Amino acid sequence: MYFTAQAVAKHMIEKGIRGRIINTASIAATVSPPGTAIYSSSKAAVVSLTKALAVELAPKGINVNAISPGVFPSEMSDGIVESPGSKKALKAIPNRRWGDTEHDMMGVLLLLASEKASAHLVGVNITVDGGHSLYAFNPMDPTSVFEDPS
């Protein structure tokens, strides 16, 4: 991710192109359930890299921001979305639904890519998860937060 951003930024600067670099992180960057140490730390690194690149590149007319999606139907999340406990898992999302790539992710992507709408957004990480990361959750038992501890 760093080398790609570095190559793109070098080209943009040489050609005098002002624009956007948008990284994809995850809610795992800030919520680290058991068993996700490597994945969570790699996504936290994406958020940190986004901020560091933003500081370096904003003066050159390149805004760098990130999107952190929650659970969206995908090959990676099939174990959650298609599991027998998926209705229970939805209770851990305040708006009670999985993300929709076309509507939820594309809207944020268009915002961050828009010159007018995001001209003053620099080093921002936008979480797109329906409020899922507002709860500390365990992906193996995502609604344990709602259960009576007794």
Results as ranks from 00 to 15, higher is better:
residue 99 G to V: 10
residue 25 A to F: 08
residue 146 F to G: 09
residue 79 G to P: 01
residue 72 F to H: 06
residue 105 M to G: 03
residue 105 M to Y: 11
residue 143 T to I: 02
residue 123 G to A: 07
residue 129 D to K: 06
residue 112 L to H: 04
residue 141 D to A: 15
residue 56 E to G: 12
residue 56 E to D: 13
residue 34 P to A: 06
residue 33 P to M: 03
residue 106 M to I: 13
residue 132 H to S: 12
residue 42 S to A: 12
residue 96 R to Q: 13
residue 33 P to D: 00
residue 79 G to A: 11
residue 96 R to A: 15
residue 30 T to Q: 14
residue 79 G to C: 06
residue 134 L to H: 01
residue 25 A to C: 10
residue 100 D to M: 09
residue 2 Y to I: 15
residue 1 M to I: 09
residue 57 L to A: 07
residue 26 S to D: 00
residue 30 T to P: 06
residue 28 A to E: 11
residue 67 I to Q: 00
residue 1 M to C: 15
residue 87 K to T: 06
residue 110 L to K: 04
residue 103 H to P: 00
residue 125 N to A: 01
residue 55 V to Q: 01
residue 31 V to C: 11
residue 10 K to E: 14
residue 148 D to S: 15
residue 36 T to G: 08
residue 27 I to W: 02
residue 3 F to K: 11
residue 121 L to H: 05
residue 111 L to C: 03
residue 15 K to Q: 15
residue 135 Y to K: 10
residue 39 Y to I: 12
residue 116 K to P: 07
residue 82 E to F: 09
residue 83 S to K: 07
residue 92 A to E: 03
residue 59 P to L: 03
residue 78 D to K: 15
residue 42 S to D: 00
residue 142 P to K: 08
residue 33 P to I: 08
residue 98 W to Y: 03
residue 74 S to P: 07
residue 93 I to L: 07
residue 84 P to M: 00
residue 26 S to V: 01
residue 27 I to S: 01
residue 85 G to M: 09
residue 127 T to M: 07
residue 70 G to F: 00
residue 106 M to H: 01
residue 62 I to L: 04
residue 88 K to H: 10
residue 71 V to E: 04
residue 94 P to H: 02
residue 134 L to E: 12
residue 1 M to G: 14
residue 148 D to W: 14
residue 64 V to P: 02
residue 70 G to A: 04
residue 56 E to A: 15
residue 127 T to Y: 06
residue 56 E to H: 06
residue 54 A to F: 00
residue 49 L to P: 00
residue 54 A to K: 05
residue 143 T to K: 13
residue 34 P to L: 12
residue 4 T to M: 13
residue 97 R to A: 10
residue 20 R to M: 13
residue 133 S to V: 08
residue 85 G to D: 07
residue 50 T to N: 06
residue 8 V to R: 02
residue 113 A to H: 00
residue 95 N to H: 08
residue 31 V to L: 10
residue 81 V to G: 04
residue 39 Y to V: 12
residue 140 M to Y: 14
residue 144 S to M: 14
residue 120 H to R: 09
residue 127 T to E: 07
residue 21 I to W: 09
residue 150 S to P: 05
residue 84 P to A: 03
residue 45 A to W: 01
residue 108 V to D: 02
residue 101 T to F: 15
residue 142 P to W: 02
residue 32 S to E: 12
residue 6 Q to E: 15
residue 10 K to Q: 14
residue 130 G to R: 02
residue 35 G to M: 11
residue 137 F to E: 04
residue 87 K to E: 14
residue 76 M to H: 05
residue 22 I to V: 13
residue 41 S to I: 10
residue 52 A to S: 13
residue 141 D to C: 14
residue 48 S to E: 05
residue 21 I to P: 03
residue 25 A to T: 09
residue 28 A to R: 10
residue 109 L to Y: 03
residue 58 A to N: 00
residue 54 A to N: 01
residue 97 R to G: 11
residue 61 G to H: 04
residue 18 R to T: 14
residue 14 E to F: 09
residue 36 T to W: 10
residue 59 P to T: 10
residue 149 P to W: 09
residue 28 A to M: 14
residue 71 V to C: 08
residue 16 G to W: 10
residue 74 S to L: 13
residue 119 A to F: 07
residue 56 E to L: 02
residue 127 T to K: 08
residue 145 V to C: 15
residue 97 R to L: 08
residue 17 I to V: 15
residue 115 E to L: 03
residue 21 I to R: 06
residue 97 R to S: 10
residue 141 D to Q: 12
residue 39 Y to A: 10
